[in-house]
Amino acid sequence: MRGSIAAVTMTALLTMFSAGAQAHDESKYPDWSGQWRRPPGIANQFDTSKPPREGQKPPLTAEYQAIWEANLKDQAAGGQGTDPTYICIPDGMPRAMNVIFPMEIIVMPKTTYILIEYLSMLRRVYTDGRSFPEDFEPSFMGYSIGKWVDKDGDGRYDELEIETRLLKNPRAFDASGIPLHEDGKTVVKERIYQDKTDPNVLYDEITTIDSALAQPWVVTKKYVRELRPLIWFESICSESNQHVRIGKENYMVGADGLLMPAKKGQLPPDLRHFTESKGEATGATGEPKR
């Protein structure tokens, strides 16, 4: 009788604890709570050990090196090149981990959430043992599966290994427009772990495998925990974005609310759909004609 009661009690409790409920467990998982920022002096380049732009020396294929160089010329002329974020498209992976604005990591047994205060970027890293779905809509942040590892065997996890697939475009590694391949078959592998001597330092070793690259590109990002009282800001790209995209052309809106060119000699947009056109209706699809 007692045995039955105990068994029933245990079954009931196990059911209660496993019915979808998740609880944070400090004894098993590392303390990655709080706010993580780029270290002082680190800008928005992808490989933080190298200078931005040309100094990044990304291992691009010849075709994508040419695309990148053309993009740098366009940016030098006032264009946006291959950087899609000027129209408030999210960074996506792996660029999101540049952490332009601070991030928060919430560790739960089945999912680790990475919240980035910029362009509403939310990563869910599933650690429930699932496989990649066979059919899933690609997204900028991708589909991430993680595995907790107890490297030092002390009974507490210390590293989160992540693989991210199912990414959509357009994406670039950083604002200099280093492109990822348009096939969207990027695979991003990460190892996130704390510094062994300083728990307020976090590392993310990011390996990007992409058809635009001649070899996997491995960089290690460093983040520092904010120890002052935390403040979270909303960074709403669309709120004060002066860029206007019409077709394939980028224009600007001036402080006086009038449309203006983003590049020297840029033609105005085609106004053929207006009954009384004030401008030149000369353009071809998405691109004004000269």
Partner: peptide, 8 residues
Amino acid sequence: APPDLRYF
């Protein structure tokens, strides 16, 4: 009305 294009 279409936008004012005076800056072009």
